[in-house]
Nucleic acid binder design. Structure first.
Length: 192
DNA sequence: CCAGACGTTGTT
DNA sequence: GTCTGG
DNA sequence: CCAGACGTTGTT
DNA sequence: GTCTGG
């Protein structure tokens, strides 16, 4: 599920360097992250903290349901997300995300070991920023674990997602097949 | 029309 | 604020 | 996933 | 038999 991931400090340093952004994050966004935790997001010209699970700006109160993922297929239709792809795109920075495989907690990360960028959307409610991760159909490889996966952008796409036109951004929303590896978390490495 | 929702995933 | 389900 | 529906219109 | 709503 795209509901549990990991971010290490060193990857935030890397991302800041790659995107030429100032690094200024509290320690609360590092480690294993669950919905409603503070996570590291990247907006145009800014790396910052946000609550994981989007709260629409028009909400009367904190929603009773989690908005941790946004389906790419219906992004532009749903009341909670409509319009955000035009003005409120962001990246969610992670090292890898967790899936359950044969009852083992399994970390899925990039084969090249680099930091990973999820395409996401953010909003602001009563001064607080929050964000959601866009999901797509799984690649063939990921489908052995799950039938959805986060939209993972490549290094040469992340600036287009942040700074490009809406059309350029929309063109990046499609199912991918990134080079990934999986390893069980309890020491034993599994080979996939 | 108008009240009520507004979201996603999917075995541990 | 806007959609949709009854 | 799996149980339950499987249809349409829309103000008095 | 197949879709969808929970």
């Amino acid at each position: 599920m795209c509901n549990f991931f990991k971010l290490l400090h060193k990857s935030a340093i890397q991302a800041a360097k790659r995107l030429k952004l100032e690094f200024d994050l509290g320690p609360e966004c590092f480690g294993d992250k669950n919905p409603t935790d503070q996570i590291c997001i990247i907006r145009p010209h800014e790396m910052t903290l946000a609550r994981w699970s989007l709260i629409p700006s028009w909400s009367k109160e904190v929603p009773g349901v989690l908005m941790t993922n946004a389906r790419s297929e219906t992004l532009e239709e749903k009341p909670a997300y409509r319009g955000l792809v035009e003005t409120n795109r962001c990246l969610i920075l992670v090292d890898g995300f967790y899936e359950w495989f044969n009852k083992h907690k399994t970390l899925i990360s990039r084969e090249d070991g680099a930091e990973m960028y999820f395409a996401g959307l953010w909003d602001q409610w009563q001064g607080e920023k929050s964000a959601t991760i866009i999901t797509t159909a799984p690649s063939e490889w990921v489908s052995q674990f799950q039938d959805r996966m986060p939209l993972i952008l490549e290094a040469d796409e992340i600036e287009r997602w942040l700074y490009g036109t809406v059309e350029e951004a929309r063109a990046l929303i499609y199912p991918r097949d990134p080079e990934l590896v999986a390893e069980t978390v309890n020491g034993q490495q599994s080979l996939f």
